[in-house]
Design a protein around this nucleic acid. Sequence first.
DNA 1: ATGACTGCCTCTGGCAGA
Length: 261
Amino acid sequence: MKIASFNINGIKARLPRLLEWLEETRPAVACLQEIKTQDEGFPAEEFEKIGYGAVWHGQKGFNGVAVLADGAMPMETRRGLPGDPEDDHSRYLEVDVFGLRVACIYLPNGNPLPGPKFDYKLAWMARLRRHMAALMALEIPAVVIGDYNVIPRDCDVWNPRAMAEDALMQPQSRDAYATLLADGWTDALATHYPAGGVWTFWDYQAGAWQRDHGFRIDHALLSPEAADRLLACGVDKDHRGREKASDHAPMWVQLRAADAG
DNA sequence: ATGACTGCCTCTGGCAGA
């Protein structure tokens, strides 16, 4: 069973690419970020036509997340990250589907820094940690997957010096991410590729794709019950090289089916 | 050395992204 994440960077501009990816790779669950549409503009019927049920949390102009399920309708368990009633960004959507709890996240970028955007990022990460602790306490297979906007290690970026001043690589950002792992969450891709060198994002600028100047910021964190079932994980890199591609590539984890009974 | 691209919703330029 494949659980995938794809920062689509505008679902309207990217719909043909997105449908193509779904049909080619057929993930059981697809978590989307940066759909950049209001709820009423979400093309749910296009996904229905190819057999996917969907829930979504949109917003005008930017942000926005959605979860698709192959042959099923995900059951929404939470919309929005708890801990700040003033936070009106659409960045968190959580569902139950196929016996899993799946949280689709779009963590704030945090640039420029210092400033309110970086403060918001760190506050969001503190809230995420608290909520993920509550998820872990459920002792169920849970997957918190999406665009974390954190480069966890130097081996997760083509050139650490090029990104050293960026919010994605600040010690505070990395420490908050490392704390999640210390709490017991498993970074699937880091576990399977400990030496790094696996990217999920390539900038549109400066020929970054052609030069393979990328980094890893899309992550799947697994609860112990989900990590026990991890079979494989990877990045659908070739989709980044297509016409009208997102600047992110899809990433995925494959979990063993739950034991019968 | 520098800047470099893309999508969105339009105050068709400014913001956001990373």
